[in-house]
Design a protein around this nucleic acid. Sequence first.
DNA 1: TCCCTTTGTTGTCACACTGACGATAAAGCG
DNA 2: CGCTTTATCGTCAGTGTGACAACAAAGGGA
Lengths: 279, 279
Amino acid sequence: MTTNREPRPGDVPPGAALLPVTVDVVALTVRDDALHVLLVERGVEPFRGALALPGGFVLPDERLGEAARRELAEETGVRTPGHLEQLRTYGPLGRDPRGPVLSVAHLLLAPEFGVVHAGSDAGGAAWHPVEHLLRDAAGHPGPDERTGATVAGRRLAFDHERILADGVERARAKLEYSALAAAFCAPEFTIADLRRVYEAVWGVRLDPRNFSRKATGAVGFLEPTGATTSGGTGRPAALYRAARPVPGPVPGRPHGQDPDDAPASVPAVLDPPLMRPSR
Amino acid sequence: MTTNREPRPGDVPPGAALLPVTVDVVALTVRDDALHVLLVERGVEPFRGALALPGGFVLPDERLGEAARRELAEETGVRTPGHLEQLRTYGPLGRDPRGPVLSVAHLLLAPEFGVVHAGSDAGGAAWHPVEHLLRDAAGHPGPDERTGATVAGRRLAFDHERILADGVERARAKLEYSALAAAFCAPEFTIADLRRVYEAVWGVRLDPRNFSRKATGAVGFLEPTGATTSGGTGRPAALYRAARPVPGPVPGRPHGQDPDDAPASVPAVLDPPLMRPSR
DNA sequence: TCCCTTTGTTGTCACACTGACGATAAAGCG
DNA sequence: CGCTTTATCGTCAGTGTGACAACAAAGGGA
């Protein structure tokens, strides 16, 4: 619909700023019943050696969502699955010692994927439990306080701690009123798998009986496959997959879609919502 | 915490894009029991003569929220009141015929304010009913279909129609679980004033008796002043003001704050939420 | 002055949803 | 074959909700 050429100086009023733009990705997954975030160790200044969200500069003629997927692929070595959406824009002042930089943060919710290789300017990507990284910010109290503390107070580069907090809060909120929890699961999953996702993201324990009633009762959420699990301990569980989003736009309700982002794999609105406890 | 100098070419990797960045503002108010948006008529190409959201290029050493307030002031002639928050970032491709431009959209919820003068590059700002501007996008059906249609199909410049739709949807959603409806009202208001805000934004009719029960029952929402209205027709109504936000951060719940944005006048989370009907 | 209209506020009631928890079903394991 | 483990169904009291009756408190006109 329009040309994709470089902006010419004549297009922009004199005095307007031309800003370097980066994308940073809060990639979340559920691993060992705990919420984890993908972090890289910075190999260049500033913040060399510190942990940071994967990300980097947007290239010319590149869309924001493309840039996020590309940076993620470059720094993990794999083409990442999952649901990607824009989170919020930070800056341009007071966040990078090199000068004004605008960062468009994105949020990725995905089943756990293996990290293959260390990128060019980052010393390896790895999953880190978010609980240890958000001790001071207005996070949840946490289910249990371990005595043998790990790397509790490790600080992230730039303003990435705040971006992480915003991303986690967005994920927690979205589980309430959207079907996005399935983005953390394999294509087929049990109600218990889904419940463990909610428990890990919210940091609470949920009653399996009440959760099953609400999850299967919500319209447009789950679709039984007919198959069941086998081989594990205990009674086999029915397998479900995420329900396909409704074809036409719902009249009264929002669609919860980001048309600019990647074609969403798990969208739609949850009705009735699954609210967080302790209201 | 850092220097505010211009980015030097050496700071940015070769190949990274320097992008012009604009802010656009979806300024919403309730006027005559209908949701209105502030639009300007463009005085320069592209889209000269078309209606557009107020906005413009970010200046160097300027924060995003500051730029939004400044552009609003330049194009309306008044220092705008109300709650300002970041909405979403659009672009950089396919939205401006002059080339790639990043737009960080903002949302302003405010009581109606008079527009004073036409800005330098905009031919006058004015309030426009949103209902006429969002006929095709997944908007609500609308309370009644007038026969004598006004400027129903008028198209907005750039991708501003989509930004407007996103802003309206954000406002509709936020009324459910936040105390932001008071941002549309004068400092002191009645329950009926507040109900008319909800009815205008959601495009529905609400039962005054049930609404009164829920609004006064929600914690951290309303604070009675003790005074009542007088002079109008009917029984006088009690006056309220928005409750002050809680001092410390709530442990379990998000604060709903945007620390980068202007010091919010009306924040906090609504408990229990006031849900939109027709679930 | 006395209705009458208008608007705000309190109450009532049936229904749906929720959390707590008992009971049952269906596997593997010794 | 009981025992453990996990999944699933039922029950029941408490609570929020929509629909609606009833009452309260002003102004306006005959």
